[in-house]
Design a binder for these strands. Structure first.
Lengths: 405, 405
DNA sequence: AAAACTTTGTCTATTGGATAAACTAAGTCT
DNA sequence: AGACTTAGTTTATCCAATAGACAAAGTTTT
């Protein structure tokens, strides 16, 4: 959006700076805010007065004196409204009611048996109904709904392509806005997860973050300079289809050697096939002839086996970890993020995956990256995407102005 | 850099908008600028008056009347100063003196025989001397020097690691600023190339661009939202070390299957090895035991062979093209750029590379990317990096303020 | 050729937000 | 009790953008 400068912009920018400072670093006095931001004390006072009136900020009483008058501490009022975050999974729809700081007030989930849009809408209604009912009386009420979906989403909130749901061109945003009467943000599940981890999880205060979500596929959410990067048309982050074997396993996307065939739950299918057919080479087994076969066992079942000491399963997870590390190294070398956060259902097997993954990265990443890169697993567990989706709604509600010189 | 809003910022922003509009869309009347930018006529008049005084803009006389008073046309004054762009290659140092619009006033180059820093400085002195002498009398004189180097550069302009030169931790910026007494910008060669293509070449008006530079290695310059993306510590874009064969050829970086071993001039070495040892598998040949062997033949020699109809060479280029396409697909799936521009010395073999490359991308990229993605070869030929480097200096000189809501 | 209209660019008064500095309020230290 | 500190507000000033009036310089109509 093209913007020119005027006083209104200045005010919006500074107000956003003040609110953000209080939100992230609070409780703070007006003087603290002035010193941290470089804004004049009077400016901070004026803007704070408006934020107080808007109920976005509260005075929580006097703080400690440092040899003079006691400061009046300011705190972000997370109870000024609430948001709903939804993760529309392939088998499960999860939703959480949160305050403006990502605190969970209530959670619900329901299995998703059928994948037609109407069944999904019904599931969404089902999980959100108790949340809507439980929503407390607040100045702003429900400020919006965020949804993370397993597919590519364009800038208008239309789900362009969600192979695991069999959806193409579903205008979820318009539909939900009509139904709930509040602003709705739709984004990819990995993007939502990235937003969640960056705001409330393992990626706090990180400017350049890549969140890798591994489940029945792999998706990445990339945060560049504190903002979700969505690419030219909103479908950045399809790293699951990065080829790590030029002439490897055939993928349903039409390509070969896609990362997710080796480092997501999809890899189980190939392990199953080679177990049935131990002597045979990968390329000769049934699985290899078929594009992206689906596994018959779940992560829950396989981690149970691994815990029981089943060697083949442990070896399989070691290999998945190694392949995860190989793909992550590719992302690191290309992107130079400050931190990588790994999340998604596959992380239940973290115990067996992590060592091999870290080893692969340590061996393969360029030395300068290796030295400064931080890697961790999700800090929010299975809630990354729901919390991130809720945050997307909050973030849109609060607004944000950014200037770069 | 943290910025708060005040009137000075507003003015800087609007002035930058006006200058940019005139620079890109000129000649324009004040009214045109007002309409295009949304700024008030009076504001445009005031800012224009300052730009005229600063000699950055010129009045070029009356334009066509459209039924009223004739407009006074405004044009960016590219002759207000000049810049020098330098490409420090492994075997060649190139430099160009340009005006503020990237017009080349004079070019020089000199071979680089030895790689120690002092030899490189001497070469830089040698190529720039005639340019400095030829620099015309202008209001601002030489406004700065930009340098593209084959390695990783941090934010302070220190060359952290340039394997092909054997450099580590060379503070080129400070050194050159002391020598020339003007601001110096140092960046990776691929980043400079990306800037050049985006400003003056095949990537004009593209918001999200990836420039792939293929020569003795592969590097990428990524432009996100019109700005070079440098990653957390400035070393984004090392895509040459993206693994496209998890357990493939051993690379000097310590990893395996790095893209540049298959799709840059380095691939020649493996072709040479397998020619000597036709029956042997890649993994058993000499070349495979050694990390990143260097080829004995140059692109010039090999393209001559290919032109002569030498089948093995043509097959090799076809394979290089296919591998280029595989890596580019990975970038496309992850980044979703609007356009990919391929440049660098390897593009001399475009004729044999391009079909296989395009075919691989068409087969392998996700359908939604495929549909909208534009791919082209460098529009500036071997001048991408020099012109880009010069532009980096110009861009820093002119300054730029950006606001996003 | 005069009158009416159009377009360009400047001038003027107004608005609104940031700021420095003075000031008031409310504490601590000796 | 008096001196000193720190927090937050008030006041006068500055400055850039803006709308709208206006002057300048053209074209079109009568």
């Amino acid at each position: 959006m093209r913007v020119t400068g005027d006083q209104a912009l200045v005010k919006k920018l500074n107000k956003s700076i003040v609110l953000d400072t209080i939100r992230r670093k609070g409780p703070l006095s007006r003087t603290d805010v002035s010193e941290r931001t470089g804004l004049n004390k009077a400016t901070v006072s004026n803007l704070t007065a408006e934020l107080l009136q808007q109920k976005l900020v509260e005075e929580t009483g006097p703080g400690e004196s440092s040899g003079g008058r006691k400061p009046l501490m300011l705190l972000f009022n997370e109870a000024a409204g609430c948001a709903i975050g939804i993760e529309l999974g392939v088998t499960l729809v999860k939703a959480a009611l949160t305050d403006l700081k990502g605190g969970i007030l209530l959670e619900r989930s329901t299995p998703l048996a059928r994948h037609d849009p109407e069944s999904a809408f019904a599931a969404i209604r089902e999980v959100t109904a108790p949340l809507l009912e439980a929503a407390p009386e607040t100045p702003y009420g429900l400020i919006g709904i965020g949804v993370g979906v397993p597919g590519m989403v364009d800038e208008a909130g239309v789900i362009l392509y969600a192979p695991n749901l069999g959806w193409e061109g579903i205008d979820l945003k318009t539909r939900l806005e009509a139904e709930f009467g509040v602003p709705v943000v739709i984004d990819n599940e990995a993007n939502a997860g990235a937003a969640g981890e960056r705001e409330y999880g393992a990626g706090r205060h990180v400017r350049h973050l890549v969140y890798v979500s591994a489940g029945m596929g792999i998706g990445s959410g990339m945060i560049i300079d504190g903002q979700l990067y969505k690419g030219a048309w909103g479908y950045a982050g399809e790293t699951g289809h990065m080829s790590i074997e030029s002439d490897g396993r055939l993928c349903s996307c039409g390509s070969r050697g896609c990362w997710e065939l080796y480092a997501s739950e999809r890899a189980y299918a190939y392990a199953e096939a080679s177990e049935k057919n131990t002597a045979a080479d990968d390329k000769k087994s049934d699985a290899a002839d078929q594009a992206s076969p689906l596994p018959s066992l779940t992560t829950r079942e396989l981690t149970a086996r691994a815990r029981g000491g089943h060697e083949e399963t442990i070896a399989m997870y070691t290999e998945i970890g190694r392949r995860l590390g190989i793909g992550i190294t590719n992302l690191v070398n290309g992107f130079n993020p400050e931190k990588i956060v790994v999340g998604g259902p596959l992380t239940e097997a973290k115990e067996w995956i992590e060592p091999a993954m870290l080893e692969a990265i340590a061996e393969r990443a360029l030395p300068y990256h290796r030295r400064e890169l931080a890697i961790s697993f999700s800090g929010l567990g299975s809630r990354s995407a729901v919390l991130g989706a809720a945050h997307l709604a909050v973030s849109q509600f609060l607004g944000r102005v950014r200037v770069s010189l």
